[in-house]
Design a protein around this nucleic acid. Structure first.
Lengths: 169, 169
DNA sequence: CATAGTAACTATGATAATCATAGTGACAAG
DNA sequence: CTTGTCACTATGATTATCATAGTTACTATG
């Protein structure tokens, strides 16, 4: 695309986040990072994105201070990508997206009755549904407070992705 | 781009929303719609997007059931774009994006001390900051409960956009 | 020690989305 | 009957994205 007007210095906060988050690949990579996938190949397989896109986006996320590259071994040097505090704070955005989709983006019965991704409040054990405040104990929910549980359907899909990736070689 | 793998039928809820929301133009248009701008030209001017992009995205939003086209006059027929219930429910996502940006995307003092966009809880009058639950009365916050107040800096920028748009003719 | 394997990329060429700019159609006002 | 407004559509250049293949730097196995 041609040079589009850069919005990172607009005064509008939604404009600023849109510059980073208004990108499919960024959103998918963030999803994987929140899910605990930190390796390049795993992220590429899970998101279905090509390696150069993953590479480019991880670089952008790193330069924005959302993600941190950490070597998990020397010889050969291998890296993992970790969310920084600024990155972890994006949980609210992803959680809101997930909530909206759970409420609107599935046809009846498509998820087998429940949520595609269940979230359990670690502190009290309640299923929080898509709430912002725990329906069990009333606490405000943030990253770390919740434990994600993919539905059997979602788990199966993830397994399929992993397999077809490794089957290609 | 080449046909990328469509994620609207993945089981992952974030993947499904990413298909719609992982797009700068969609995010900016939604921002304007939540702000109360419903006319094509106003949206185009405010977002800085070209008319064919605005047109294409409004069509997509309409086909997704997020936006509704309503004629506000006959002879000549003129339309406005209104958020549907499904669209209004995206407020949580935009609000989370705004909150994140307010916390992380400004250098010190850039906003003149406060938020770029203040939100006031209509019911009790408190400034909610970037909270999900009103710090004054403890109520959960959703679209309609809040009144947005752009900072002087943001207001000035919006005025500038409007002017430079009309000055081009 | 030679081949195979793994992780994390980079290179290449085709395709498609985005941009700026200009133009259109339908009407209203002066 | 010219100018103006609103909501678009048309066009051509530019650039991002995709699929596929190749690279680098090692380790592990036979």
């Amino acid at each position: 695309m041609p040079k589009r007007t850069d919005l990172s210095d607009t005064f509008c906060p939604v404009g600023r986040s849109a510059e980073l988050l208004g990108d499919r690949a960024v959103l998918l990579i963030l999803r994987d990072l929140f899910f605990g996938n930190r390796r390049f190949e795993v992220i590429a397989a899970n998101t279905g994105l090509g390696p150069q896109l993953v590479s480019a986006r991880l670089k952008r996320l790193e330069s924005e201070g959302v993600v941190e590259r950490r070597a998990y071994q020397e010889r050969p040097v291998r890296h993992e990508y970790w969310l920084t505090a600024k990155g972890k704070d994006l949980f609210g955005v992803l959680y809101a997206m997930r909530g909206w989709a759970e409420r609107w983006a599935y046809r009846d019965g498509e998820t087998g009755g429940g949520s595609a991704m269940r979230y359990i409040h670690r502190a009290c054990g309640s299923d929080v549904g898509t709430a912002l405040v725990c329906p069990g104990c009333g606490e405000t929910l943030g990253y770390g407070d919740l434990k994600g549980e993919p539905s059997p359907e979602l788990r199966a899909e993830q397994a399929r992705r992993g397999r077809s990736e490794s089957a290609r070689r």
